[in-house]
Amino acid sequence: MKIVVLVKQVPDSGAERSLRADDNTVDRATANNVINEMDEYAIEEALRLKEAHGGEVVILTMGPDKATDSIRKALSMGPDAAVHVVDDALHGSCAIATSKVLAAALAQQNADLIIAGAESTDGRVQVLPHMLAERLGIAALTGARKLTVDGSTLTVERQTDEGYEVVTASTPAVVSVWDTINDPRYPSFKGIMAAKKKPVQTLSLADLGVAASEVGLDGATSAVLEHGKRPPRTGGNTVEDSGDGGVKLVEFLATEKFV
């Protein structure tokens, strides 16, 4: 089984993040860039499937030059190879354009299974797996908390607000996973040393047959027009209990749709 795992480099969500003043895109230059956390679960799931069924795990990343650090780190967990789509024209690409580029790269891979994190901690739109499945004409099994493979049949427990749904499909397919699906491994020293020697194929837009005009800020279907700092936290509401405190609390929770 050949599995491609989508890995995105994102600014560390545990630190202060910002948008650039000039074009309102994510500031990746000053940030501490890391592997999108959910993608580590995708890598782990792929490695477990490989250990159980054999095959090959390939990392696919679209990102600037410095995304190489995250690719090496991903490889140190155990995947066999990586594909890095890097092109200056990609800067500022929207989700739709990104899916076009990744779909073109995936078309070259002939993967049986494509695994992605359910969302990235910077964009958080959760749409890429669906878009890729649509472009590739294959099934999308998203938001998985469990994935089993039996021959060419994939079965997924799909996490919902109420519980979970059991969904099946045949390979090839796209599966996106939540962080409930496994515990990602830490890279071993052996893995770190081996990662240095693993092949990383670099592809440009021209290699993928995608025009520069279709991607980047100019090709984006949505744009951030302006941004500002989050307003400082305000004092909040204080409920005085004069016998009706409980009711007021429930009313507040109801307006916030917690109950």
Binding site: R185, Y186, P187, S188, F189, K190, G191, M193
Partner: peptide, 22 residues
């Protein structure tokens, strides 16, 4: 057990004995 899986116990030992070759 997790430290074992990370190979920490095999760090300075050769790979022929399942060490990490560090």
């Amino acid at each position: 057990r997790q430290m074992g899986k990370m190979g920490l116990f095999g760090l300075p030992f050769p790979t022929e004995f399942d060490g990490e070759g560090g």
